[in-house]
Simulated scan of single mutants.
Amino acid sequence: MPVPDRASVLDQQRQTWDSVSEGWQVWRETFERGGAAVTRALLDLSAPRPGERVLDVGSGCGEPALSAAHAVGADGRVLGIDISPAMTEIARRRAADLPQARFEVGDLVDLDLPEHSFDVVLSRWALMFLPERAAALRALHAVLVPGGRLAAAVWGPAGEAPVVGLPFRAIMPRVQGPTPPPPPPPDAPGPYAMADPERCHAELTAAGFVDVRVERVRAPFWVESPEVFTAYTRALLPEQVTAMLREWLGSADDPGLWADVAALAEEYRAADGTVQLPSTVLLLSGVAGK
């Protein structure tokens, strides 16, 4: 299966994230119970200081850019970029009282950022979606000053990230038909495209980063019940997936499907009744070589 061209990938991603932007706004606090721990880890790794310039790639609804804006203070500058106009608008509203934070729609190529214009690059669950990833990582290296710091988070293997992958154990058998398609090429963008620690290390090194480190951690995601997890999943399901459900099941509201999702979530129910979904995250860090 060939890798789609860059324009097609970006257009599909734009549609995907725009379609779930309202759901992300509603469920943001639920996601951030696990996501905030990853943001703190990224800030610890990159250590943005007052007055520094930070680029956040794939900001979505605003993190970790907003947290970085507090770290750099009024004399600093934070630019968050994202492919989704709808998500970017949410981030802008959230940054209304942080004049040092700015959010733009686009990607590295669209925005043509100047070389050596940032002290820190951050990214939380976005690098694995970048098309032409090797070139994108080189571009990230180029926008950093020599000695500038990169800190990014990507998902670990699919089976170790239930907060993302669990619903698809019920969904995919229903939308693939009797003959599942072949797996995507290893370079194809996707949620688990950077799940191999050794490959991450090699890719960052090839892009020019030194002192590269890859740390495997578990992000503490949880929801109140299987029913809440089902509602959360339905709200964040991309339009492309709901379209496949309509095609194969006649409706994205098929009760059997969502009963199966709730049953899968039940497997993660703790003694206190909550659904605990700790998920593997790879924390990537490096320094821009000269």
Rank of each mutant, 00 (worst) to 15 (best):
Q240S: 13
C61W: 07
L283E: 02
G76D: 03
V281T: 15
L113S: 03
A188F: 09
P238I: 11
P183G: 06
V241K: 02
F168Y: 15
L249A: 08
A152D: 02
D272M: 13
Y232T: 02
R94T: 10
V287G: 01
S117R: 08
R234K: 15
T230G: 11
T88I: 14
V57T: 06
P185A: 13
V20I: 15
H201C: 08
M1S: 11
G156F: 06
D260S: 14
A65E: 04
L43D: 08
E63A: 12
L79V: 10
Q276A: 14
F221L: 08
F229V: 04
P186M: 09
A41Q: 10
R102G: 06
A47P: 04
P162T: 13
D119C: 09
V164F: 13
E224G: 07
A161R: 05
F31S: 13
T88S: 15
V38C: 06
Q100F: 03
R169D: 09
P182L: 10
W125M: 12
F118H: 13
D211Q: 13
L66F: 03
A101I: 07
P181L: 08
A126Q: 07
L122P: 01
G34T: 09
V228T: 13
D112T: 12
D272W: 09
A134I: 04
A95Q: 05
A195S: 15
L79Q: 05
L166S: 04
F103K: 00
S19T: 05
V261P: 00
W125N: 11
L113W: 04
V105T: 14
C61D: 11
P180A: 01
V72C: 05
D75Q: 15
V143F: 09
L264P: 01
P48W: 06
G190Y: 10
P50R: 11
G148M: 03
S279H: 03
P114N: 09
V275C: 13
S46A: 15
G177H: 07
P220K: 10
L245V: 11
M87E: 10
E215D: 15
D119Y: 00
Q276D: 14
A47K: 12
G190L: 09
E32H: 15
R124Y: 10
V38A: 02
P48G: 01
A136T: 00
G106W: 11
